[in-house]
Write a protein that binds this DNA or RNA. Structure first.
Lengths: 126, 126
DNA sequence: CTATCATCCGTACGGATCTACGGATCTACG
DNA sequence: CGTAGATCCGTAGATCCGTACGGATGATAG
């Protein structure tokens, strides 16, 4: 055998079939996770938060707002820009960033506007 | 100066202040992103989907359902288990996994139940 | 036209993460 | 007991990712 090829017959065939029928394809899952990976970084996530509430900010101001150095912000923006999540507008020597108009709405609503709560109430609802 | 220390005065102080006041702390952001990182992986995400719809599955069945090898699934589960997102129940020589009872509800509702759509409609609605 | 500022780009380094493999456990079965 | 199945664990190698740095670019001011 090549690798771990055990388990020829399911323990619970019904559940396997049920799961399989509702599972996103590996392809869809990959697309989704590459999107999630983009926001799964403190700097990038906070950049997105900042842009979400402030419409438009330049790199330096973003760094100020986040309390991060400009290298980090610049790199974060590079990634977000490359993936099309943010757009730029250049005015003189300043580059302004904003969320792309086609920024995934569910991502914005759910992740940006509600997900912070997650970190606070997994077991403690206070 | 040590590093990139430019930009002494904001270009747009108001927006900086506004963003800053609404920004999650680096700490909250880090907590959230480490959670997001857990689901930002195709294997783990699909494991969670499968467990979400099938209540309980053992490693081998999970591998069957995902069409992945058991090593991948086992490693994915190891990570999820370590982080407390899934629980195990042992019955004979089979180990069953399920979502932890305190699995973050918003994560479940938003990410697992709605987020796949994201990958389909950013610009192309078919 | 030169100095300076805001920002981008390429690169190199270090650490985290995933994969793959071999072996250890524990259970069931005869 | 001894064997086979299901799963876990440790580890080594490959790969990905974020950070930091130096220099390039383009724009403004003098």
């Amino acid at each position: 055998m090549t690798a771990t090829a055990a388990h020829a017959h399911p323990v619970d065939p019904e559940r396997v079939a049920h799961a399989r029928s509702r599972l996103p394809s590996l392809d869809d899952a990959s697309r989704l996770t590459s999107l999630l990976s983009l926001i799964a970084d403190p700097v990038r996530l906070r950049i997105l938060y900042a842009l979400d509430v402030s419409e438009e900010l330049c790199v330096g101001d973003l760094a100020l707002a986040l309390g991060a150095n400009e290298d980090q912000v610049s790199y974060g923006l590079r990634v977000l820009r490359t993936s099309g999540l943010v757009l730029t507008r250049k005015d003189g020597r300043v580059v302004f960033y904003r969320l792309a108009p086609d920024f995934p709405a569910p991502l914005r609503e759910h992740c940006l506007q509600q997900l912070v709560d997650i970190t606070r109430g997994p077991a403690a609802q206070d």
